[in-house]
């Protein structure tokens, strides 16, 4: 493009170039966002008027500064958008509003970097929480399992007590059948019956307590699982935000 417009305004030799038309063309292209535009082959010595090459160089200089700023700002923001914050706008050579704008971009990048760090920190804390909570889940699950086992065992104990009681009744009947000879054995059988009754009431009390315990353990386990789902959902959301 630059060759095209320069060629078109340069009919033959250097001397008869229309500098004003070329300068206007370069400015118009720049205004349209074509920052490649420059006045070329200015050849200071060929100008009769000293002001003309000065003006042309000044136009180029203005374009150089604008071009450099746009390239710097673009690069820095592209890097930041990519999560890389070390790429700051270079302030060297930037003056006035260019320098101020560059400073604002750098401040924003620094701010983004801080926020990213805070987010990363929150993320690693959340990961820790997740691991700890997973351990807690294990413990509660083991507790529920253990109370379940005890529940089963207490059922067995209740059954054993009633069987022992039945056995002692049978023993009393057998002792009565043998008459006097079986009296001593009858006493033992009725003592066994008393013990069996006590065992039965103790084990049914245990059974009741264990039922409560099992229920509490199950409730805890369910609550923990609900919290766990929330934690994991949050993790997914946070992960997505970090990746964004």
């Amino acid at each position: 493009m630059s060759e095209h417009s320069n060629e078109s305004t340069r009919p033959s030799g250097f001397g008869d170039r229309n500098w004003v038309a070329e300068a206007s063309d370069v400015c118009r292209r720049a205004a349209r966002g074509d920052l490649e535009a420059r006045v070329l082959n200015i050849d200071d010595a060929s100008h009769e008027n000293r002001d003309m090459p000065e003006l042309l160089h000044a136009i180029n200089h203005l374009l150089d500064m604008t071009d450099a700023f746009v390239r710097e700002a673009t690069a820095s923001l592209e890097f930041a958008g990519d999560g890389k914050f070390f790429r700051r706008v270079l302030l060297a050579g930037m003056l006035g509003s260019f320098a101020r704008a560059a400073g604002s971009i750098n401040a924003a990048t620094a701010q983004m970097e801080q926020e990213k760090k805070a987010l990363d920190h929150a993320h690693s804390q959340r990961l820790e929480l997740e691991t700890d909570f997973d351990k807690l889940r294990e413990v509660v699950r083991a507790l529920a399992d253990a109370t379940g086992h005890i529940d089963l065992m207490s059922k067995t104990m209740v059954k054993l007590a009633s069987q022992t009681s039945l056995l002692s009744i049978n023993a009393s009947i057998e002792a009565a059948r043998v008459g006097d000879l079986g009296r001593g054995f009858g006493v033992v059988a009725s003592e066994v019956k008393k013990l069996a009754t006590q065992a039965a009431s103790a084990s049914s009390e245990i059974q009741g307590r264990v039922r409560e315990l099992t229920g509490a353990a199950r409730n805890t386990s369910e609550t923990i699982e609900e919290i766990w789902t929330v934690i994991r959902d949050q993790g997914g959301a946070q992960g997505a935000k970090r990746a964004a």
Binding site: L90, A92, L95, A99, G103
Partner: peptide, 23 residues
């Protein structure tokens, strides 16, 4: 490579000296 280059490059000091612009 980029991080290395930026780690050895002083940023801003030159402009601060010459234009007085706040970084």
């Amino acid at each position: 490579y980029d991080e290395f280059i930026f780690s050895i490059t002083d940023q801003g000091s030159i402009t601060d000296q010459h234009s007085g612009a706040a970084a």
